[in-house]
Design a protein around this nucleic acid. Structure first.
Length: 903
RNA sequence: GCGGGGGUUGCCGAGCUAGGUUAAAGGUACCAGACUUAAGAUCUGGUUCCGUAGGGAUUCGGGGGUUCAAAUCCCCUCCCCCGCACCA
């Protein structure tokens, strides 16, 4: 290490802070950039750093382009995770306690303090502090004076205002809604609450419970394939299971006892009596469509814990049923109701295909069922009944609805797989009554959002389609839960606004939060927000001081809003970002709607998804200590394009460190070099100027990777070539000509190094606040000359590669004057005509010209250039060089491509 | 299935929305060499195949087509990843 990143970073952090470099005043052309606020329930790792780093690079670049940039940040604490963790710590859950101990250790705090985390707000506070620290250390140019959290009272007031507004606009409604639920815990359960819920997702599946009549009772058979009802041949009950009679809507139903336990959370169901399964097996039941009498058989494969524990059997379309009947040696008629591509799928063929010998081949049966289901679902045509001629997938839902409407079936919800909570209780589906929704299904609302999407600045381009698609399928979204941290629903305090719904327009709060903080808490109310955002009312009830602050807040809002760019990772597209658009459209006037959105990829580590078990999760803090912020930023910026995933590979990171080191010492040495550069070396200045200009365009379109590859890697390679050709001293003198501009152009990516070098070059201000460099390129000619020389070097190499001789001498013959003339002429004339008129010698040359349209011909004075470079070139290639005009040497030469003879 | 994104030279990954200047950027790995007592670091050259002269042949998931010319455009096909919701 020739530079000590720790001391450099500390030094500049302090200076930035002292001079409030990143706390913008409302002056000039503004640029408001936001990145979703982090959820603070643990230490940040490299994955978290990415979006904020990209955000910061953009912020810093825009700042250098003369915009007044605000990059604010707050913290998200709503929802269940923090609550869940603190509860686990309170309950002594060992894994959680160890995890949080490790966080404390990481930050150098006393691990025994872990018990304090049993209070949720302590978790939020502790980690938000640490995140501020981590982010600051990463060099993020965040204005922390605008910080707030989704849990603080002022923010609660704002969200309450928002929800009353939505309610008044009739965008909020109530209804029954199925949710994953734990009866034992008395709560809905989310992914985090379910054992392996993150890796093996659980969703809600709708079953159709179909009525089969036996005397006065109804056997309630559940199915996910209501389209096969016409093909039913019998019912199956599990002879080992307990069944019971229950009453719902005045009818009595027979279901498994386990089913009743779950059903009562979905509808009003009342226990009547236990029943003996033997009393039903062997009897006949009447199916509801055509009142056919069908037998009831025993079957051990029927799981009393799935659906209702009553299975209707369609052996023509179900492998289970087919195999189940084989086992009890029953051979009913196979009634086919679905055909796939003009033929029916034979269950016997499927059984053989999958090598199923009996009901014990469970895995094979599951696989075969999936096969049959997919085939018949996507390609199956219904051949009987009301829906004849339709493809299953097109009418499946309608069939179920139709059965329910006809009064012969009810919907039943079931989990997509058997699951239990982390506390070990079964997960089931409960229908929550009077759930609150935001009704995103309203067509006029959608239409406005679509209009917004059409005109927004979206990156990458494919975002537009993804958003439009999301708008199409989005419907009502439950917006409140019964537990978690957050804002209470103003219409009903028993509910807490759900954590994504409480963070849809919070970006506007950044613009006014410092002013809200100056007010008396009681004075922050709906009237105030109406005034600030809509200019409504006079605030005549409020004090003089409050009115004045409110006025300022309104001006600040008008100045900063809307958000110019919101940057985040792609998983947010179909939820957060879409809600963000919907809510802005509903609440704000069009000129305050979002202007741009960009999405980026995630971070994987050592080629794999990050996970604790793989040991490839690196905390941000450790990375910063080990490599420094600039290195981290450089790696993230240049490893992958913004919208692709970055792969964090430690071995590669180490290599970056060497490069950054070289960059630093190179600029340091250049600064100390004395004297004017050699004219011949100025090609590097030309290349650099063009690089800096091109990179500005790349930064603009968020091609950050391309910018850094150009400005950093390719530039370093050029300088290496220059050093080799001209020697270190000369190279440094040339680098000195653009050192300052070079480092400024990279300052958005490596701000600390940039500041250090910038000041090393004798400048007083902050590199971070300089204008992005632009230099006039007056060295194009030198670059062309160098390109010419370089091509000779390449040719020399490719010859020596295949030729066995070790050359002592290189004789170069440049193209004769007549060739140049012909070339010139060919540009304005039909070359075929010229060939016809030409002498044999010229003709050959013209034919070559026709083939090689790419001849480099920037240098007209090749001989003169060669003379000038001869000495350097000879030293570099370690050969003696002579330039010959002798026809034997020039014969094969072309303009831009002199003939080379090695001896 | 729907929607989105991909399949490129050992690996990662550009280029492909303006077809030729691309055997194909950059990184990494590997081989040879320089330096060094040695290793590491650094630097140089090389890494599809053939070739005693800067050349040629074959490559960009597979197949077909358009074109003087295709990794790049069109059609068909195979495979992979992500999202499809109440979870931050």
């Amino acid at each position: 290490m020739s530079y000590n990143f720790n001391s450099i970073e500390e030094k500049w952090l302090e200076k930035w802070k002292d001079e409030k470099v990143f706390e913008p005043r409302p002056e000039g052309k503004k640029f408001l950039l936001t990145v979703p606020w982090p959820y603070c329930n643990g230490a940040l790792h490299i994955g978290h750093g990415r979006t904020y780093t990209i955000g910061d690079i953009v912020a810093r670049y825009k700042r250098m382009k003369g915009l007044n940039v605000m990059y604010p940040m707050g913290f998200h604490i709503s929802g269940t995770p923090i609550l869940a963790f603190s509860k686990k710590i309170e309950n002594g859950d060992e894994a959680t306690i160890n995890l949080y101990r490790s966080y404390l250790e990481l930050y150098g705090d006393d691990p025994s303090k872990v018990s304090e985390f049993s209070v949720p707000s302590n978790i939020a506070e502790y980690f938000s502090d640490k995140i501020i620290n981590d982010f600051t250390n990463m060099g993020f140019s965040i204005d922390w004076t605008r910080k707030f959290t989704s849990g603080e009272p002022i923010y609660n007031k704002f969200v309450e205002w928002q929800f009353r507004f939505l309610r008044d606009k009739k965008l909020i409604k109530r209804g029954d809604y199925p949710l994953l639920y734990s009866a034992e815990e008395g709560n809905p359960v989310g992914e985090d609450d379910i054992l392996e819920g993150d890796t093996d997702k659980v969703s809600i599946t709708q079953f159709t419970g179909v009525f089969f009549y036996v005397g006065d009772d109804v056997l309630l058979a559940s199915t996910v394939r209501p389209e096969t009802l016409d093909g039913v041949t019998n019912l199956f009950l599990n002879p080992k299971a307990q069944y019971c009679r229950i009453r719902m809507n005045g009818k009595t139903f027979i279901v498994s006892s386990r089913a009743f336990e779950k059903l009562k959370y979905q509808r009003d169901a009342e226990f009547v009596s236990n029943v003996k399964v033997e009393d039903y097996i062997g009897k006949k039941a009447k199916e509801p469509l055509n009142s056919r009498e069908i037998p009831i058989f025993p079957a051990k494969f029927v799981d009393p814990d799935i659906g209702t524990g009553v299975d209707y059997s369609v052996p023509a379309h179900s492998v289970w049923d087919h195999v189940g009947l084989l086992e009890i040696s029953e051979a009913p008629d196979y009634i086919y109701v679905i055909e796939t591509k003009d033929q029916t799928l034979s269950m016997e063929d499927v059984r053989k295909k999958f090598g199923i010998s009996g009901l014990d081949d469970k895995d094979k049966l599951v696989e075969a069922t999936k096969y049959v289901y997919e085939k018949e679902y996507y390609h199956g045509k219904i051949v009987t009944g009301k829906f004849k001629g339709n493809i299953v997938k097109d009418v499946k839902d309608r069939i179920s609805e139709d059965l329910v409407q006809s009064g012969i079936a009810i919907p039943i919800y079931e989990t997509s797989r058997k699951a239990e909570t982390r506390e070990g209780n079964p997960v089931m589906v409960a229908v929550i009554k009077n759930q609150w929704f935001i009704d995103y299904s309203i067509e006029e609302w959608k239409e406005k959002v679509r209009e917004l999407i059409e005109k927004m600045d979206l990156r990458p381009d494919s975002l537009r389609n993804q958003f439009l698609q999301t708008v199409d399928w989005i419907k009502e979204r439950p917006c409140a839960r019964k537990r978690g941290l957050g804002t209470k629903l103003p219409m009903d305090n028993a509910w807490i606004i759900e954590s994504l719904s409480d963070s849809t327009i919070y970006t506007v709060v950044y613009t006014i939060i410092p002013f809200l903080r100056q007010m008396k808490f009681e004075e922050i109310d709906d009237e105030l927000f109406d005034f600030i955002f809509f200019g409504k009312g006079q605030l005549s009830q409020k004090g003089e001081a409050t009115r004045k602050i409110a006025e300022e807040a309104r001006n600040e809002y008008l100045y900063w809003y809307p958000v110019d760019l919101r940057h985040t990772s792609y998983p947010h597209i179909s939820n957060h970002l879409t809600f963000y658009l919907f809510n802005h459209v509903a609440i704000f006037p069009p000129e305050k709607w979002p202007i741009g959105i960009s999405t980026g990829g995630m971070v994987i580590s050592e080629g794999q998804k990050m996970s604790k078990s793989k040991g490839n999760v690196y905390p941000l803090l450790t990375i910063k200590r080990k490599y420094g912020a600039d290195l981290f930023r450089m790696y993230l910026a240049s490893n992958a394009d913004v919208w692709y995933d970055v792969d964090w590979r430690t071995s590669e990171v180490e290599n970056y460190s060497k490069k950054l080191d070289r960059f630093f010492s190179l600029l340091e040495d250049a600064r100390n070099s004395k004297g004017e550069p050699d004219e011949k070396d100025l090609w590097i200045v030309s290349r650099m100027i063009d690089r800096i200009t091109r990179s500005s365009k790349n930064y603009d379109s968020m091609k950050i990777r391309e910018a850094t590859v150009e400005l950093f890697f390719n530039a370093l390679n050029d300088i290496r070539d220059l050093e080799n050709f001209s020697g270190k001293e000369r190279a440094l003198r040339a680098v000195k000509k653009f050192g300052k501009e070079w480092v400024l152009s990279l300052s958005p990516v490596i701000p600390f190094v940039a500041e250090e070098i910038y000041s090393m070059y004798g400048e007083n201000g902050f590199a971070s606040l300089q204008t992005y460099p632009s230099m006039e390129n007056v060295y194009r000619e030198q670059e062309s000359e160098w390109n010419f020389i370089e091509s000779i070097v390449e040719d020399f190499r490719s010859i020596t590669k295949v030729s066995p001789i070790r050359p002592k001498k290189m004789i170069i013959g440049t193209a004769e004057e007549w060739k140049w003339k012909l070339l010139e002429e060919s540009k304005s004339r039909d070359i075929k005509q010229m060939i016809k008129e030409a002498t044999p010698e010229r003709r050959e040359f013209l034919l070559t010209l026709m083939k090689k349209k790419d001849l480099t011909q920037n240098i007209r004075n090749e001989r003169e250039v060669l003379e000038r470079y001869r000495e350097d070139l000879a030293r570099y290639l370690n050969v003696e060089i002579s330039i010959s005009e002798d026809a034997s040497y020039t014969k094969k030469a072309l303009p831009g491509r002199p003939a080379i003879r090695l001896e």
